[in-house]
Design a protein around this nucleic acid. Structure first.
Lengths: 189, 189
DNA sequence: CCACGCTTAGTACCTAGTATTAAAACCAAA
DNA sequence: TTTGGTTTTAATACTAGGTACTAAGCGTGG
């Protein structure tokens, strides 16, 4: 035993391997072997056991995800999944709260996601080619946690001129968590 | 005329090559050669001339860009750039309306981005470790277009118990475009 | 006719691996 | 101590998707 660093146990090494690849995914087997003080073959057996693909495959997967990403909140019309729509009357959408929508510390959803679901639903339900949000009165009733599934129901209450009055109520599986009253304004082009 | 023709064909092919790689970047030289009806070597000469790297390098670059992304809207705390903050009193943030924030047809900003900027600013300005949005009354005064730069100013109006009353006013370079009144609720852990 | 630009062919080499076989090292129980 | 099992290392053949380079063919204008 002349090695500077004592050789680690297999499990411990595999744990470190995973962590290392998590923090810096663009790393070759040879570099990993150096870091963990084992041979390249060992690293490859470890990857095989852990089901971790090779560098090029990892890179490709990341790039593909990045490519498909533009369909995030930014460019989508209705946030959440539109599951029912009767134009001019009512609409329903479902949205799941994912880890990236919550505050890390508290696991409570950032308010604007809930608002976005409701606002986009209110826009979808009205019978107008072009419209913008005019006024909104909103109330968050209970904090929403990671993993919850939110069901938003929008209802057109009345229409006056180019103004639409819409109620949106959002529930999780137990209770109402949010409600909003929107006045949407239809624009003449 | 033949020489010119050939040159034109080359230019045209290279243009098509660029377009093709733009729309589907995960494509091998061999597939490109098939598509453009030339040999693999020609494709490689074209890439060389145009300074387009090989598939693996392209993939790697995309993955690296995705990795370095300064976080999307999802996981960022303050939406927009926080440029001034006096905790418990006021705060200012700037956000530019980019093409992915607007409706394609009208080039008008989706309402929830403006809301998100204001809401996250209201949350940043209060002097509480954990807080959620309770109530909001918001008004969109004029439609906001692609490319505009929005300056949001938040001001804590009063504090009663665990409730903070905050005004946020958002302007573009000409006028006030949005205003909101928030009641934020500080939570006890 | 032949020079020039464009295109194709062919070869050697590269990286970061996989897949497989085999030998060595270690560790503990019988 | 011997045996057997796991773990580690080594060695070899093969792969994809290229680069780099040399050489040859093709088409056309001057």
């Amino acid at each position: 035993m002349g090695d500077d660093m004592a050789r680690l146990q297999k499990r411990q090494r595999q744990k470190m391997l995973k962590e290392k690849l998590n923090s810096s995914p663009f790393i070759r087997d040879e570099e990993l072997a150096d870091l963990l003080n084992v041979s390249v073959q060992t690293i490859r057996l470890d990857r095989l056991e852990l089901g971790i693909p090779e560098l090029r495959e990892r890179t490709k997967q990341m790039a593909e995800i990045a490519q498909k990403q533009p369909k995030t909140m930014a460019s989508v019309d209705v946030i959440g999944e539109l599951i029912d729509l009767e134009i001019g009357k009512n609409a329903i959408s479902i949205m799941s709260i994912t880890p990236d929508m919550v505050f890390e510390k508290t696991q409570i959803a950032r308010g604007h996601f809930v608002f976005s679901q409701a606002n986009s639903l209110a826009l979808a339900v009205i019978d107008a080619p072009v419209a913008v949000t005019g006024v909104a009165n909103i109330k968050y009733k209970v904090p929403i946690k990671n993993g919850e599934k939110l069901i938003a129901k929008a209802e057109v209450i009345k229409k006056r001129g180019n103004k639409y009055f819409i109620w949106v109520k959002t529930r999780n599986d137990r209770q109402e968590v949010f409600r909003a009253k929107f006045i949407m304004v239809s624009l003449e082009q």
